[in-house]
Simulated scan of single mutants.
Amino acid sequence: MQAIRSTLRSRAAVPALTARSFSSSPAHSLARLTITGRLAAEPELSSTSTGEIVKYAVATSSGPKDNRQTSWFRIASFVPDGPSRAYLLGLPKGSLVLVEGDATIRNYEDTEGKRHSTLSIVQRNIEVLKRGTPSEEQSE
């Protein structure tokens, strides 16, 4: 009896191999990005065969001032019609945003037979860190 208790105690002390203490997400493939940058233009509403989506681009810069590199990320948002969509569509160019999104790389071949790949990002969350100021041409 003592041997059984000892065995049970030692097994209880060893964590299960299936435990995932580093993540609370399901165990499937997922690429998630967090981007902090400025809106390249005001978000736009686009129609698709499955409904409407909001599209926008975020620019990020890195490196020293004399050799600064800018990356552009195109983002799609499936925000339903309502206050959240109106808020997103009302953000002015230059707003500093933090975007969390799911990323997918798609490979395709163009009409000339050249292979290309593109990064698709679908917004999960957006946080406005600083609103941009409307440009002069918008206020006229």
Rank of each mutant, 00 (worst) to 15 (best):
M1V: 11
M1Y: 04
A3C: 13
I4D: 09
R5D: 15
R5F: 09
S6H: 06
R9K: 12
S10G: 05
A12E: 04
A13V: 04
A13D: 05
L17D: 10
T18N: 07
A19F: 07
S21L: 12
S21Q: 10
P26F: 11
A27T: 05
A27V: 11
S29C: 12
L30P: 00
L30Q: 11
A31F: 09
L33F: 06
T34H: 12
I35N: 13
T36H: 04
T36S: 10
T36E: 08
T36W: 00
G37E: 03
A40H: 07
A40N: 07
A41S: 15
E42Q: 10
P43G: 09
E44L: 10
E44S: 09
L45V: 01
L45T: 03
L45N: 04
S49Y: 07
T50F: 13
T50W: 08
E52T: 12
V54R: 00
K55A: 14
V58S: 03
A59E: 08
S61Y: 05
S61P: 01
G63L: 11
P64A: 09
P64H: 07
K65A: 11
N67K: 15
N67Q: 14
N67F: 09
R68G: 01
R74C: 13
R74L: 11
R74V: 10
I75K: 00
I75T: 02
I75R: 00
I75H: 02
I75Q: 04
S77L: 03
S77P: 04
V79D: 05
D81R: 09
D81Q: 15
G82A: 01
S84W: 03
R85I: 07
A86D: 11
Y87G: 11
Y87Q: 15
Y87L: 14
Y87A: 15
L88D: 04
L88T: 02
L88R: 01
L89S: 06
L89N: 00
L89T: 03
L91S: 01
L91Q: 02
L91G: 00
G94I: 12
S95L: 07
S95V: 00
V97D: 03
V97T: 06
V99F: 03
E100L: 03
G101T: 05
G101N: 08
D102Y: 04
D102A: 06
T104G: 04
T104P: 02
R106K: 13
E109Q: 12
D110Q: 05
D110P: 08
T111D: 15
E112K: 08
G113M: 06
S117E: 06
S117M: 09
L119T: 04
S120L: 11
S120Q: 11
I121E: 04
I121H: 03
I121T: 05
Q123V: 00
N125T: 10
E127N: 12
L129H: 03
G132Y: 00
S135F: 07
E137Y: 13
Q138I: 08
Q138S: 14
S139Y: 10
S139P: 05
S139W: 04
E140P: 02
E140H: 13
